[in-house]
Amino acid sequence: MLVFTLRRLLQAIPSLIFIAIISFILLHIVPGGPAQSLLGQHSTPARIAAIDRSLGLNKPLPVQFGIWFWHLLHGNFGYSYSYSQPVMHVIMIYLPHTLEIVTVAVILAHILSVFMGTVQGYYQGRWFDHVITTLTFFLWSMPVFWLGILVVMIFSINLGWFPSGGITNPEFPGGFASYVSHATLPILVLMLSTLASWARFMRSSIMDAMVQDYVRTARSKGLSEFMVLFKHALRNSLLPIITLFGLSIPTLFGGALVVELIFNYPGIGLLTWNAAFQRDYPIILGTVMMVGVLTVAGNLLADLLYGLVDPRITYS
């Protein structure tokens, strides 16, 4: 297990370096380069040359990459133009908010989709299956932002149950309860948008499992259908959804970006969106890399979880 973990950690390193290289290239293909975007309309050739010198942009590209990468290894993602602070510092203010809603949404989506998919796969072709299949098919085709608007219209404007935006109400600080009620709708939208594809996946996975030999064996041992389904079939069908989790991290953060914009929720999605309009390239690339790193870490975690769920896998 330890050897496997170490080997997977080593495999993650090239991925991270590659993400860094792509980010570096992107930063340098911006028309006019960093100096131009830093100066905006105040740019003159002399000023650009001065900034290029002070930022070390006049050095050969490989040298620049070396310096930049060296900073990166020290957690230095560069300097934000609009916040006048280190990128890492800014990201660390916003990232926890995003992680909170994404984590809760993922956990809820997992529980619900496993339950829905499992029962559906078992009652394949019956009315329960048809209803849920139709529902997930609609959800699956639904743009996240459209879902978000509908949720705001229903739960916030018409019913008035939850606030339509922000992270807490500055006029009536309600402590934890206010925080939860502000996070409810963003979490709901994020959860619904991931639920559909996972439930669909789970359904076909359970359908495959139900015709396997070990399920027949379990049945012939006289186990109750409940045990057969939830102990034998489910456990084996969980494997793909764990991998699916690792792979869907970038999509989840993409969904979070849209959700944060709709609910004006101050996470890294909203941060990136604001940065995009201010042409604050270091921030955008910082978040791209941050999510990249989180994805690599998530995939690593998914691989390790595999072993816990599936006893057939021994990491030797």
Binding site: L26, I29, P31, T251, L257, A276, I284, G292, T295, V296
Partner: peptide, 23 residues
């Protein structure tokens, strides 16, 4: 295939934001 694995970890929407404002 390794290259694909790496590319899969890049958040497309964030990248699109970047490319969109840059170009």
């Amino acid at each position: 295939m390794r290259a694909i694995d790496v590319l899969l970890s890049i958040p497309t929407l964030f990248l699109l934001l970047f490319l969109d404002v840059a170009f």
